[in-house]
Nucleic acid binder design. Structure first.
Lengths: 208, 208
DNA sequence: GGGGTCATGTAATAGGTTACATGATTCT
DNA sequence: AGAATCATGTAACCTATTACATGACCCC
């Protein structure tokens, strides 16, 4: 499924959504992206924004409203949403909410090739990952609490709650994985280590 | 963190890893990617593979070994891993296992802008998402079971187990989210609906 | 023996990221 | 007043995706 959009970059989705509120010039979008914290959810970089705006204009989803200039600053072009644009926004959002997309997180790739590292090292690395995951969770939790304390409605933080849920799931997974490698009876570590020509002592079954 | 790699595409990681086993020509890599099912974990497309191979060669991680030709088929160039390549593979893998990377899943973006849709619709869409999530979980579960039945060691399926864990977490999250919208006392639906100028009947508190 | 599709690669195009440019403002 | 940073945009470069090309093999 997942139809091919004329403009596929998710930045474009944010732009469309901002323009439903009021016309804007690119720099203001840029500012909003960062201030409003949406840059945590959508990959953002200055250059791409101008590109995306162009693409949206070419596709007829937005149009130039006026070009103003203050003093000697560069001109700022203000854009407005068209009907087509409003439609695209809804349609796209609907699709994203309804259909889970197949994605390629880096950790998945790493896991699929992880046998290339020796198990002793993997266990160590996974341990460090657990720490970092805990830090990230704490950070998000902090962000959520602070923002809520400022009177923001929790609806505007769902994406952070979601991220948090995923991080927790990942942490549990990693813990289980470590145990599976280390388990003295049924652990995978032994075969794995042999395969690497590593000393297998750590994984040796204790025949008492 | 996350240092800048000379070749950043994860396809390159797979290529490096294949080449630790034996020299190969690009088409064989392509084949392996698909047969071995790694294309589920690493975004793959024919064109990009040749590009990545070029980049790896330019970076000195692999070198041409020989160029053979069978009959009138196009030439096939066989590549070997260099020491630098072997080193890059380990270093990269280590990083990916140790450091969780900040990523931008589509659903996160959608959630961050979801207030742009009216709550009644959102609930419906989320319901459909739940179904699809269940289907995907079933599919992965099936894949895992079949593969295990074929005698493959579970270590080579960790990435699928991981995916599964994430899908489960997402499902729970979505269920909770739906409840939060619908909850008759504390639900978010009401304010949200008003904000959209929707009839709020569904969310009206029943003052009996 | 003509129509698919497999094997194998190159070239054209579009997309995204980094670097550059330059007036304005603020800091010390 | 010079340094740093903000505001605003363009251009150059690199990456990735699609399209094109062509001989071989297989099916009916």
């Amino acid at each position: 499924m997942a139809k091919k959009r004329k403009v596929g970059n998710l930045l474009a989705l944010a732009v469309l959504s901002y323009l439903t509120r009021e016309p804007m010039h690119p720099y203001e979008m840029s500012r909003t992206l960062r201030d409003h914290g949406d840059a945590r959810s959508v990959k953002f970089n200055h250059g791409s924004l101008y590109m995306v705006v162009q693409q949206l204009a070419r596709a007829g989803f937005i149009v130039e409203q006026e070009t103003t200039r203050e003093g000697q600053r560069p001109e700022r072009t203000v854009y407005v949403l068209t009907d087509a644009g409003r439609h695209e926004l809804r349609d796209w959002l609907r699709e994203l909410v309804e259909e889970p997309q197949h994605e390629y997180p880096q950790f998945v790739a790493a896991l699929s090739l992880i046998a290339a590292l020796p198990p002793s090292e993997v266990v160590e690395l996974l341990g460090r990952r657990l720490q970092r995951l805990a830090e990230q969770r704490a950070e998000i939790r902090g962000l959520i609490d602070n923002t809520l304390a400022g009177g923001v409605h929790p609806l505007f933080l769902v994406e952070e709650e979601y991220r948090l849920a995923l991080l927790e799931a990942e942490s549990s997974f990693v813990e289980r994985f470590i145990e599976q490698i280390n388990h003295p009876e049924t652990g995978w570590g032994r075969l794995w280590a042999e395969f690497h020509g590593e000393p297998t002592a750590t994984y040796e079954r204790q025949e008492s």
